[in-house]
Simulated scan of single mutants.
Amino acid sequence: MQSTTAKQAGLASCHRCHLLSKLSSNKSICPRCRAVIHSRKPDSIARTWALIITAFIFYIPANILPVTYTSSIGMVQPDTIMSGVIYFIHSGSWPIALIIFIASVFVPLLKLIILIVLLLSVQLRWKWRPVDRTRLYHLTEAVGRWSMLDIFVITILVALVHMGALANIAAGLGALFFAMVVVITMLAAESFDSRLIWDNIENTDD
């Protein structure tokens, strides 16, 4: 016996308070919080693609431009994310280098790739392992915020290291681009509607 989904029953969950309500032919309003109710997030695929492309564009300067400028006794040393990773490797601090590389380089890029795969799976109407794809999406959504670790470290260093001519740390333009990449990928994950993965399965079964 096949169960009836909320969409098939003409019901939808409010995006704000998650109340399950009946959809009308006109614009539906949540009776509890008065938010507009949609069966699926409007223009989910188009918005997610636009955000992913924007994040990829910003990802390049985020890794090329310096994220910090360290000045000490009249000398200024610019550092990118990868130069910081290489520095910690050469100094023997492998755990720190690994954390920075995973949080600042690997995770943002992996998250973008996963979102692209999910978008393609919806557009190409894949029936392959919808449960695993849904879990992968929620995992991607959960770990994305940890990419801000590098920005938090830079913020702390800039706030703490102010010794005039002896030592000073300032944030570079790369840090701004990196923060934008993290925020945009978080918005991309939020704009993607994982229920579209299951729509392909249910439409086939009808």
Rank of each mutant, 00 (worst) to 15 (best):
L149R: 02
Y87T: 13
F106C: 11
I37K: 00
I99V: 10
A171V: 01
L20A: 04
A103Y: 12
F101P: 05
F101H: 10
I89W: 10
R40I: 15
Y69S: 09
A165L: 14
T68G: 13
D132W: 05
A188G: 06
E190V: 00
N26L: 13
A179Q: 03
I100Q: 05
W49P: 04
L51W: 02
C33T: 02
T155C: 06
T48G: 05
L112Q: 14
R40G: 03
V143T: 10
V181N: 03
L166P: 12
L157A: 13
T54C: 08
L98W: 10
T70P: 01
S72P: 02
D199G: 07
I86Y: 09
T4K: 13
P108F: 14
N63V: 10
L149G: 01
S21R: 00
S147V: 00
S3G: 07
E141V: 01
I29M: 02
I99S: 07
S13P: 01
L139W: 08
E202V: 13
T54A: 14
I169F: 04
I114V: 14
V131I: 02
A35F: 10
S71R: 12
I96T: 08
V105A: 11
M82Q: 09
S25M: 13
L120P: 01
K27T: 15
A46S: 09
G92T: 12
I100Y: 02
V85S: 11
H18G: 07
S3Q: 12
D150M: 11
S191E: 05
A62Y: 04
L23T: 05
D132C: 06
F178R: 05
T54R: 15
T48K: 11
I156E: 09
H15D: 09
I116H: 15
C14H: 02
S91C: 05
D79N: 11
M186P: 00
N26K: 13
A189F: 14
D150Y: 07
E202P: 04
T54Q: 11
P31A: 00
R195D: 00
P108G: 12
M148Y: 04
F152W: 03
I45M: 04
S39R: 04
T48F: 05
T48S: 11
T134R: 09
R34L: 11
R133C: 07
P130A: 01
R47T: 06
I37M: 00
M180K: 02
S71F: 08
L124I: 06
A97C: 08
A189L: 10
F88Y: 11
M75W: 14
V161S: 10
L118P: 04
C14W: 02
F58Y: 14
D150W: 08
E141F: 03
I73M: 04
Q8E: 14
H18E: 12
W146S: 05
Y69V: 02
I154T: 03
I102V: 14
W146A: 02
S93Y: 15
F152D: 12
K111A: 15
D205L: 15
T70I: 07
M82E: 01
A170C: 06
G174T: 11
Y59C: 08
H18Y: 12
H38A: 09
F192W: 06
A9E: 07
D205N: 15
N200L: 01
V181Y: 04
I37D: 00
L187A: 07
I113M: 14
